[in-house]
Simulated assay, not measured.
Amino acid sequence: MKNLALFSNQNSFISKSWAYLRNLKELFPFAPILLLLTVTCHQIDLQEITSRLEINYQQASLIRNISFEDNQIVYEVRKKKENKAQFLNEIINIYNEIEIGKCIIYCPSVKSCENLIIELQTKMSKEIIAMYHGELSAKQKSAVLFNWKSGKIQIMIATNAFGMGVNVPDVRIVIHTVFRFDATHFFIGNLVQESGHAGRDGLPAKAIIMYSRKDIRTIMGIYLL
């Protein structure tokens, strides 16, 4: 830690992170804070942050309105088939669109992952399908990731536990089987981050978001008759 080069911090506008960064600055006074990231920040906020962290305001820059759009990813929204057999067939048809590459299917819970993998394995080769979620042991996760990166696994059924640090270039399609948006699930951010697993090799890729009537009721806060 003696050779710490710089600090970077996400969610810099959250005040509790300021104390954390201030403590780091005291421990490593010669390491610069190079990059602070937040969703919303105005000039007056920058003044407060630099004051609290004892950063020279004249040396700080506020960079906003930069697009990080992935042009190779095509987003598609589909109404989810209510019939289970039709839903499974649609998943299989989507996967069959891929000539070379992998597919990630995100589910909202461990139980839904388990149900989907059982159902898909009755219609497809079991060897190419795997499941990843937070309840797997470290050994199980390691084995699944090894087979995923080596190409043995072509379809990954996962919760949002499958995300950070998983970098495989040849993912062609990412499917979200539900669309949720409420106070406890910051789904839009997760959707963008998870969809970003597709097309990392720069080749065309697709992100498919499925929605149901239940999802719409949740989003709109109304009940459809």
Rank of each mutant, 00 (worst) to 15 (best):
S109D: 07
M131I: 13
E99M: 09
M156Q: 03
E90V: 03
K80I: 07
M210T: 11
I63S: 02
E119G: 07
Y75I: 01
I55G: 01
I14D: 10
L37Y: 06
I153V: 14
I219P: 10
Q86A: 07
A138F: 12
Q140A: 06
A60V: 03
F186T: 11
I105F: 08
G163I: 00
V178N: 06
R200Y: 02
L88W: 03
Y211F: 15
K141F: 00
L203P: 03
N9D: 15
S137Y: 15
T38H: 07
K139W: 06
I222M: 15
N9K: 06
S15K: 13
I173G: 03
I222E: 13
I153P: 03
I104K: 01
I100E: 12
K152S: 14
A130R: 10
I209V: 14
G163K: 02
R22E: 09
Q10L: 02
G163L: 02
H133Q: 04
M124I: 09
S125V: 03
T184C: 11
Q140H: 13
L225M: 15
E127H: 15
F13L: 05
F179Q: 09
K80E: 13
L225H: 14
G189S: 10
I91D: 08
L36P: 09
N71M: 08
E97G: 08
F181A: 06
S51H: 10
L4N: 09
N96L: 09
E76P: 04
E114F: 05
I153T: 07
R217T: 11
E135P: 01
T122S: 10
A198N: 00
Y211C: 02
I117V: 13
S12W: 03
M220I: 13
A143Y: 08
R213Q: 14
L36V: 14
A161R: 05
G163F: 03
F68D: 05
I188E: 12
V74M: 10
S15E: 10
S51P: 10
T122A: 12
F28E: 06
L24G: 03
G189D: 12
F30A: 10
V174T: 04
G202F: 12
L225S: 15
S142D: 07
I155P: 01
K81A: 08
R64F: 02
A183I: 09
V144A: 04
K102V: 11
T38I: 05
N96Y: 05
I66R: 01
I92Y: 11
I209C: 11
F68Q: 09
N190Q: 15
E194R: 00
K141P: 05
Q86G: 05
Y132Q: 03
N65S: 10
I49Q: 08
A5T: 13
L116T: 05
K80T: 02
I94D: 04
E26N: 14
Y20I: 12
N190R: 00
V166N: 01
M220C: 12
L37F: 08
F146M: 09
H133F: 01
I117D: 06
